[in-house]
Design a protein around this nucleic acid. Sequence first.
DNA 1: CGCATATTCCAACGAATATTAGAATAATGC
DNA 2: GCATTATTCTAATATTCGTTGGAATATGCG
Lengths: 220, 220
Amino acid sequence: MDKRKAKDLLSEEVARIGKAVSSPKRLELLELLAQGEKTVDALAAEAGIDIKLASAHLKVLKAARLVVAERDGRFIAYRLSGEDVSALWVKLRTVAEEHLVELKVAMDGIFSAPEKLDAETRRSLMSKARRGDVVVIDVRPAAEYDNGHLPFARSMPLDEIRQRIKELPADKDIVAYCRGPFCMMSAEAVALLQEHGYRAQKIADGTAEWQAAGLPLTTA
Amino acid sequence: MDKRKAKDLLSEEVARIGKAVSSPKRLELLELLAQGEKTVDALAAEAGIDIKLASAHLKVLKAARLVVAERDGRFIAYRLSGEDVSALWVKLRTVAEEHLVELKVAMDGIFSAPEKLDAETRRSLMSKARRGDVVVIDVRPAAEYDNGHLPFARSMPLDEIRQRIKELPADKDIVAYCRGPFCMMSAEAVALLQEHGYRAQKIADGTAEWQAAGLPLTTA
DNA sequence: CGCATATTCCAACGAATATTAGAATAATGC
DNA sequence: GCATTATTCTAATATTCGTTGGAATATGCG
């Protein structure tokens, strides 16, 4: 029967996407690229791998059309080929979080307070932020903030908080977010702020999670 | 820095899900399981592979916690471990459909009319079905229909259509669906109905797509 | 108990993959 | 044009994965 061959062909094509997301390193690259366009250089440095290896992995992602490359002067910038790729990364991660006990255990060991958000919490956070009852800070590097951020959030990169801490109101609740549930920057920011007497907490959402929940981002 | 190790650990866990969905055969098994619980036997037969191989692939899926097995008498029935797994399959497929030119070409070669649905089309289909202006038929095996089906749809398995064709109204539009965009049953059903003078068309959605679009199923 | 059926386990092979090192390419700036 | 920087390509390695065949396990039935 020829139906078999047709079906195999279709499954094989989808498996190209599956293969692309079957490597830990590539998933980390996707998470980074979900924050915006980045050079091979920057990706390798942030993922803690050799540039050659990063290049090889990016080639695989490109072959699966999950990312596109564009030369920008001497550098080559990679970016996700669409919003749906970011959503796929979120879906993979949430399925893993839901079903893999090992991942739950690992996360409990790394993050003291998970702070997962549901639709209602997200909504109430936004109305509080709109009224100014809480200050939402984006602790990622400024370039990532510029690429898109939560509504009403202000940029306060982790490595600038020490110097700029005076800019934050001491009498208000501060909510920090970063790249998502696997990112440790918001936790560090919260620790730093609490040391200085601020009422700070983190949320697990990053821009990818926010967008996957159907909520809009602000692109400055 | 220890952050690296933590991050690697988290990525590795998610990659377990990625690895599980990196094989064409396993994806096909997931598509089948999205239609409901099935035995190893049935899965192997429908996927066109050896039982041993099916068992091996199911073991991988089970290790990634995407499926759960339960012994039922002499048989072992597998089922998806959650609705989110079905949604992951849909997401993988839609990303592939969106970005892989090769897949688009392959689908154009296999299916003459794609009939993708958007939110508005789905809504209008349902109101027409509710009013009885169209007859929605589920051409999958009866067991899959029983496991969950589109609202207002009636079961009319592909291999029973010939005998039961008189049950269908000749003066109404008939809309057939099956397991999803990769499934060929609805196309065959439509061809058969049109041969007999019925006004029939297919839609790409299966129950997984319907559910992933946020719409409810009916479980008989 | 012993036989039939359904499924898994084990071993083995070739194919595909991740990683590293070294050479090659491509654009920039003097 | 030449050195510099960023990236990719090629080749080589160890490892993992898909697949198949044969043995083992578990359940139901007479």
